[in-house]
């Protein structure tokens, strides 16, 4: 099953990013074809130097490193969302591929199931 997970939420303001990551890692045990997308404010999930303990939240940023360990190689960010927010995709805490909105639409269309967080 080709499953796409779309991350659209800012980290720490909601638990969406953390619960998305838990779902991705669990799904990867059953499916070898998982694509993870970071779009809109979701691109902030991967920003380095986060210190959420200041706001009583757990720092799950290191857990994104598990994606590679779990052989999840399709990790994408929205180029346009990064540009709008002044983020360099190469400076994010894990290796990602940047896609234009058109390329994103093409990737979405390849998935059999899509879950958005």
């Amino acid at each position: 099953m080709k499953i796409g997970i779309i991350n659209q939420s800012f980290p720490h303001g909601s638990a969406a990013g953390r619960e998305s990551l838990d779902a991705v890692l669990a799904l990867s045990a059953f499916s070898e074809d998982i694509a993870v997308f970071f779009i809109d404010d979701g691109v902030f999930q991967l920003l380095p130097d986060q210190d959420p303990s200041k706001i009583l939240q757990r720092n799950y940023l290191p857990t994104f490193g598990m994606l590679e360990l779990y052989d999840i190689e399709q990790v994408y960010v929205c180029q346009q969302s990064c540009e709008q927010r002044g983020i360099d995709p190469q400076a994010l805490s894990i290796t990602v591929e940047a896609l234009t909105p058109t390329e994103l639409a093409e990737h979405f269309a390849q998935q059999q199931q899509l879950i958005r967080f």
């Binding site: 099953m1 499953i3 838990d22 779902a23 669990a26 799904l27 045990a29 059953f30 499916s31 199931q113």
Partner: peptide, 9 residues
């Protein structure tokens, strides 16, 4: 969450 994976499959 494994149950979500099972339903998905």
């Amino acid at each position: 969450l494994g149950q979500l994976a099972e339903l998905s499959a």
